[in-house]
Computed example of a mutant assay.
Amino acid sequence: MRQFTAVVNPTAGGSTGAALLRIARLLREAGAELETEYSRSLAHAQELALAAGAQGRVVLAVGGDGIAGGIGGALSGTGTVLGLVPAGRGNDFARALGLPADPADLARVLLDHEPRTVDTIEVESAVHPRTVVLGSVYAGVDALANQHANNARLLRGAASYYLGGLRAVTTWRPASFRVTVDGQEHAHRGYSVVAANSAYYGSGRAIAPAARLDDGVLDVVMIREAPRHLFFALMNELKTGAHINRPEVQILRGREIRIEADRAVPYGADGEVEATLPVTARVRPGDLAVLC
């Protein structure tokens, strides 16, 4: 029987307490041992996860994409098994893993399923010399939208990301990017560049529908300059991934992506890292074991 340590983000934008209580009861009823640790910060959550992993315990990240990416990044390459209890606003990595929403079904995954290895992303910039994340690295209007969503106190879930996106687009000036994919440079002027390991970001938006967590490459989605009304239409198409059929969207694939710009353009990763370009994202194939 597995031994679990749940690391909880008490400030996640969802209902962490209720989600943890439901899962904890089901795990303990099945005979599993569960310890709970409450984090004071993302760095503290990573310390707790590494300590639990060193004891051979399965680490449960309880919260949203921020704590999932932070803990998953810290555990990348350690051999520790990660489980997720989605309880945040976005839960995009859990969505990419196909985790069930029903607590009983999720408990069965955590108790009985064998770990699967997935890729992670090593992120390098002047501000963050080495950070490992799970879902995606995004630069441009996406990063600005995420900042607005994180600052939205009265909204949760998709609504905060949608309104954050509207606010970001109305003030965005197209930037000139230089995107280098596995050594080949691509000039790009427009709204955003996303290096995606996961298909989803921004609370279920399918930014890179063909991205796979275990294929050893990142999907690079670039959205070119276009009239604002067209970008608003494209935002709606992100729900289904239909945006990839537009001529304003270009998709590349590679193992190492460097993103630069002609001005101080923000970038983010998994909803937490906030800095400015340039940034380099490298795939780490099969570097994390997860229950899914």
Rank of each mutant, 00 (worst) to 15 (best):
Arg2Ser: 03
Thr5Asn: 00
Val7Thr: 05
Asn9Met: 05
Thr11Leu: 11
Gly13Val: 09
Ala18Phe: 01
Ala18Ile: 07
Leu21Cys: 04
Ile23Trp: 05
Ile23His: 01
Leu27Met: 07
Ala30Arg: 15
Glu33Gly: 11
Leu34Gly: 04
Thr36Phe: 00
Ser39Pro: 04
His44Gly: 01
His44Ala: 07
Ala45Cys: 08
Leu50Pro: 06
Ala52Arg: 08
Ala54Pro: 00
Arg57Ile: 01
Val58Trp: 06
Val59Lys: 09
Leu60Tyr: 04
Ala61Asp: 02
Val62Met: 11
Gly66Ile: 10
Ile67Asn: 00
Gly72His: 06
Gly73Ser: 05
Ala74Leu: 07
Gly79Thr: 06
Gly79Gln: 11
Gly79Asp: 10
Gly79His: 12
Thr80Ile: 03
Leu82Asp: 03
Val85His: 02
Gly90Tyr: 03
Asn91Tyr: 09
Arg95Ile: 01
Arg95Phe: 05
Ala96Gln: 03
Gly98Gln: 09
Leu99Ser: 03
Leu99Phe: 11
Leu99Val: 08
Ala107Cys: 09
Asp112Asn: 13
His113Glu: 15
Glu114Cys: 01
Asp119Pro: 09
Ile121Tyr: 02
Glu122Arg: 14
Glu122His: 02
Val123Tyr: 01
Ala126Ser: 12
Ala126Gln: 13
Ala126Asn: 01
His128Gln: 07
Thr131Glu: 14
Thr131Leu: 08
Gly135Phe: 00
Ser136Trp: 00
Gly140Thr: 04
Val141Pro: 00
Asp142Tyr: 08
Asp142Lys: 01
Ala149Asp: 09
Ala149Asn: 10
Ala152Asn: 09
Leu155Met: 14
Arg156Phe: 03
Gly157Ser: 06
Ala159Lys: 12
Tyr161Cys: 03
Tyr161Asp: 03
Gly164Glu: 07
Leu166His: 11
Arg167Leu: 13
Trp172Ala: 06
Trp172Tyr: 15
Trp172Lys: 05
Trp172Gly: 04
Val179His: 04
Val179Phe: 08
Val179Asp: 02
His186Met: 04
Gly190Pro: 04
Ser192Met: 14
Val194Thr: 13
Val194Ser: 06
Ala195Gly: 06
Gly202Asp: 07
Gly204Glu: 05
Ala206Arg: 15
Ala206Cys: 14
Arg212Ser: 11
Asp215Ile: 09
Asp219His: 12
Ile223Asp: 00
Ala226Val: 07
Ala226Thr: 13
Ala226Glu: 13
Arg228Gln: 12
Phe232Thr: 02
Ala242Tyr: 07
His243Phe: 11
Ile244Trp: 00
Asn245Ile: 00
Val249Asp: 05
Leu252Arg: 14
Gly254Thr: 10
Arg255Ser: 13
Ala261Tyr: 04
Ala261Ser: 13
Gly268Ala: 14
Gly268Arg: 06
Arg282Asn: 05
Arg282Trp: 02
Arg284Thr: 03
Asp287Lys: 03
Ala289Arg: 15
Val290Ile: 13
Leu291Met: 12
Cys292Met: 06
